[in-house]
Design a protein around this nucleic acid. Structure first.
Ligand SMILES: [Mg+2]
Length: 221
DNA sequence: GCGACAG
DNA sequence: ATCTTGTCGC
């Protein structure tokens, strides 16, 4: 029983705090990937978060943290952050090396109230954050996306630019990139590309996904 | 009312 | 989100 109307208001308040201006003048030294895993048997009760920190430019791992905790909400479209952010914050606290930039599995401002998980987490930590979604929540591509790797198009919502689609690899579905906090869209796309290594997902998010699965299995979930 | 719907 | 090794196609 969640008070979705109250959560909606909370999202509007958080969205108002999002900064679309670049805080990343120089290259970030440490880049963190964030993802959450949950069991198919008990999807509403427990979540397992992982953050993997890579050092730029070698993308060598310098720290990681994983944590399991109770989820306050089941998954409800548009309210993902309330389910996953508490666990992500707990994992962040455990990190021996704090990232200068976060790449989060999910949308940033490409959200009905401009408050996807990457924006939500970025504002909570006041850290530069990028949303790296694997599918659409809202928005319309400005034009058909090219087939070649590296192709990109803007993602619009009622004429407003809310993100970009990036074909990170040929013959793969695109990434749905949007800003989370303290980055411009161009910078967000730039760092997704810079941290990609020939796979569909950029390394931070790919490794975080892998790590979260390990945390869940270790917890017998 | 109908369709869409991050993870 | 998750189930799962081999197999198919670019
Ligand atoms: Mg995820």
């Amino acid at each position: 029983m969640a008070d979705l109307a109250a959560l909606r208001e909370e999202q509007r308040a958080i969205a108002a705090r999002v900064i679309a201006q670049d805080a990343l003048t120089a290259a970030p030294r440490f880049i963190g990937g964030v993802d959450i895993s949950c069991s198919r048997f008990d999807p509403t009760q427990r979540v397992h978060a992982a953050i993997v920190v890579l050092e730029w430019p070698g993308l060598t791992e310098v720290a990681r943290a994983g944590i399991s905790c109770h989820a306050d909400l089941p998954y409800i479209t548009g309210f993902l952050a309330f389910r996953e952010v508490p666990a992500a914050l707990a994992a962040f606290d455990q990190l021996a090396v704090k990232p200068d930039l976060l790449m989060v599995d999910g949308q940033g401002i490409a959200h009905p109230r401009r408050c996807g998980i990457a924006a939500h987490l970025g504002v909570m930590l006041d850290l530069p954050a990028i949303g790296v979604g694997k599918s659409r929540l809202i928005g319309t591509p400005e034009a058909p996306l090219g087939e070649a790797a590296g192709s990109q198009v803007r993602l619009l919502d009622r004429g407003e630019e809310i993100g970009a689609l990036l074909r990170s690899r040929a013959h793969s579905n695109p990434l749905w990139i949007s800003i989370g906090h303290r980055v411009s869209l161009a910078t967000a796309v730039k760092w997704v590309r810079a941290t990609s290594r020939g796979r569909r997902l950029p390394e931070p998010t790919r490794l975080a996904h892998e790590a979260a699965g390990m945390v869940r299995r270790a917890a017998c979930g």
